[in-house]
Computed example of a mutant assay.
Amino acid sequence: MIRSVPVDLGERAYDVLIGPGLVDEAGARLRPFVRRDRVAVVSDETVWSLHGARLTAALKRAGLEAHPIVLPPGEQTKSFAGLEGLCDALLALELDRGDLIVAFGGGVIGDLAGFAAAVYKRGADFVQIPTTLLAQVDSSVGGKTAIDTPRGKNLVGAFHQPRLVLADLDVLGTLPDREMRAGYAEVLKYGLLGDATFFAWLQAEGGAVLAREPAALARAVERSVEMKAEIVIDDEREAGRRALLNFGHTFGHALEAETGYGEALLHGEAVGLGSAMAFRYSAAAGFCGVEDARRAVAAVAAAGLPSRLSDLGGHRFAADALLRHMAQDKKAEGGRLTFILARSPGDAFVARDVDPAEMRAFLISEGAV
């Protein structure tokens, strides 16, 4: 069964299709958006080796020629150098603005290819075919595209909505368990920030989602996408409510920066740990009950995600360094620290003037030095 979640943004509206077998249907699904019988497909070496032949065959059945641009995997590809290389490859294909760019991979590929599409000849259409749980429930939906810089994650980018998102649940069968857990952190985030009923369901059924049981996985992806779509429709450019989607991210991005955006700490793992820290800070600041914070942290830990700094293999974090990264966060304004905090699981809010001294003391209580 294919589920469809609309992202109603007027003339830029699109659908997120969720279900099995969508890669095999990609040619027919993409056909309405193609002006010439060719598409550029941006992927990484891992995804292309696993699923590239299926996508190429699906496009061929619809009379479309795939022009693959296959990049190295990993967060390091999402950089100025990676953007330059991708744009050069697109120019070498002599694409015009009427041609379609397909992002076929996880969040790195989606962010990079989406940003390239946003700036290529001042804007080209693109389609997201996300191949990780994290990308299916989060980064492929909503039009945020970006690259990283040495000063922080996703600090250079653009809002550029896709024409279509195809979330094929079958491709998650090849996803390593660690990547599956990292994606689940984003699923759990939705329950923690705005749906107590969904959070309770995840407490009961999270194991089934992580085990990739079809019905549980489909519900988790669909509900996550529904929540993101609702928020994006209300606040496309993050002027207000959309900031809630960054729950756990201000902590998480700082931790990622300090660990080098590599294998030491995956983005989803950072979000899980950041979510736990946000609840503990909320409890320490009196916004949230201690028992509610305990429930939230327990849900993170039960998924096999890091929930404390000590879970990161002895890596030492300097509180002042983490604060510097937090001050560079996109939500920060006028030198004030902005965090997404919580009153309870399912009830998050934006705190726009967190005291840096209080945050520093909290980070030291968490194990930073």
Rank of each mutant, 00 (worst) to 15 (best):
E263D: 15
T149W: 07
A283Y: 00
A40H: 01
A361Q: 03
G173W: 00
L169S: 09
R151N: 10
T174I: 02
C288M: 15
L273H: 01
H315A: 13
R61F: 07
G286Q: 05
F247M: 11
E226S: 09
A301I: 02
L312P: 15
L169H: 01
L9E: 00
V271S: 04
K331C: 07
D99I: 03
G206K: 07
E256P: 04
R360K: 13
L83K: 00
E291K: 14
D355A: 09
V7H: 05
D170W: 08
R237I: 07
R241A: 11
F251H: 07
T174M: 01
G143F: 00
E45Y: 06
K331I: 00
A361S: 12
S282V: 10
A319W: 12
S344L: 14
Y281R: 12
A284T: 08
I129F: 14
G85D: 12
R29C: 10
M1Q: 14
A264Q: 14
L55V: 13
R31V: 10
F251D: 01
D235I: 04
F80M: 12
G183Q: 02
I147Y: 11
F198L: 07
G10K: 09
R163E: 12
I147N: 06
G314N: 07
V7F: 09
P68C: 14
R343K: 15
L193S: 06
V39C: 03
L341S: 10
M277Q: 13
G335P: 00
N154E: 08
A40R: 08
R61M: 04
R324N: 09
L309P: 15
G183A: 07
K228L: 08
A332D: 12
